[in-house]
Amino acid sequence: MYPAPSIIAFSTLSGLGFGLMFWLGIGMPGSTGLVAFVFFAIAYVLAGAGLIASTFHLGHPERALLAFTQWRSSWLSREAVGAVAALAVMGLYAIGRVFFAASWIPIGWLGAALSLMTVLTTSMIYAQMKTVPRWRSPLTPALYLALSLGGGALLAGQVTWALLLIGMAGLLQLAWWWHGDRAFSDAGTTMASATGLGHIGRVSAFEPPHTGPNYLLREMVYVVGRKHAFKLRIIAFVLGYALPLAFLLVTFSHWMGLLAVLSHITGILASRWLFFAEAEHVVGLYYGKR
């Protein structure tokens, strides 16, 4: 799949932002006034920037309001509804914390739940895709949720939770890669089933429909950069998981925390790039590719 920078930025940043909102919503930290304002501002910038980035890849962003209508059937629509609901509810909660030094607990918990649900809907957009076997696994939402909670705990200064959840996310990441590398062959979709010609013999692509590439090949049969996948996995794992854990374990200071956050974000961006670039869509089989 084509790794669109806008989607990579969106899913990484908004995941972090909603993760931070979760911790703020359950009162960890329960700061008020200016400190609370800074926390909420960071959460809103990350989640909001992600949402705005996600509209960049739309052909007709002016019709984006229609995307709130199909929540009964579409995970993408559920994501839109969830994101706006989470931002609205948490906004109310933030007003109490920042201006009235009050913790309206039910609203905070509701906002926290909506934040997590938004991350879940994001992950389900990918996990529902039967056409991309690498994504279609319960490990995909598990990884997205662990990353959001872990990264959020890191931003919220919840060191113990951050250690636990980022460590867990690292293990899920390894499991996800392990599963993903087998998923395509396990899914059983082959050139034989794609063409229905397998009963005759071995099928190979003789001639593509046209002389040049098309939308399908550009969007869904992205194979550039896969040769560096292994190196990028190591970079993603070291920067996204190992180094932040090391920074947190050494001694906790704000500078160490900042280093851990920056390293984590860079690593997760690399991991998210691989999430798309390595994902093989079954339509590639019609072109003799994976």
Binding site: M1, H57, L58, G59, H60, P61, R63, A64, L66, A67, L76, I125, M129, K130, T131, V132, T189, A194, N214, Y215, L216, E219, M220, H281, V282, V283, Y286
Partner: peptide
Amino acid sequence: DACIGCGLCAWACPYGAREMDAASKV
């Protein structure tokens, strides 16, 4: 008229039956 050009339906189709038009973005 209601298509926002997100491309998700083309991802969901295993057959490559949907193509986003590069000019009209639908």
